[in-house]
């Protein structure tokens, strides 16, 4: 599956909730969904600082406003493969292959899972 359909589905879900939130009282069900979505986007302490080291270049939550590639919302498997190739020196890069050497297998898995969950396109036009 390409990243596009997943991304769209996530946007739709968030978009569908927003008017309700603004419109008035919510049912308990809806409130829990919105709260959980907000909480899910937050990472566990163990991974969030590690993930935050990426944001200086790739933008807040991996969503880049400029020429740096965004990593938010990319499929987890793609991120794992890309980071492993960078670490092995097998992917073309100007800089990231040098930093990728610092990540363990476990950290690559956790970072990929984290960024796959982040919404994309809040800062840049789709």
């Amino acid at each position: 599956m390409t990243p596009m359909p997943r991304l769209t589905m996530r946007r739709l879900a968030i978009g569908a909730l927003l008017p309700l939130v603004g419109a008035g009282p919510l049912g308990a069900q809806d409130a829990r969904t919105a709260a959980d979505a907000a909480h899910d986007a937050q990472a566990a302490p163990a991974v969030r600082l590690l993930a935050a080291t990426c944001a200086n270049c790739h933008g807040p939550q991996g969503d880049s406003p400029g020429a740096m590639p965004s990593i938010a919302g990319l499929p987890r498997e793609h991120l794992v493969e890309r980071l492993r190739m960078l670490r092995a020196g097998a992917a073309d890069a100007t800089l990231m292959h040098q930093l990728a050497k610092a990540y363990s297998d476990d950290e690559i898995e956790r970072l990929a899972a984290h960024f796959a969950r982040q919404p994309r396109g809040r800062r840049t036009a789709p």
Binding site: N56, C57, P60, P65, G66, A67, H97, Q98
Partner: peptide
């Protein structure tokens, strides 16, 4: 624990110039 410098191929330094401004926009937002 890890790190490095730009490679010696100067053609890549133009791409790095675009990334440098991209870096600035990202860190300003961050």
């Amino acid at each position: 624990t890890a790190g490095g410098l730009s490679g010696s191929e100067r053609g890549r330094w133009v791409a790095e110039g675009r990334y440098a401004w991209g870096w600035a926009r990202s860190i300003w937002a961050d």
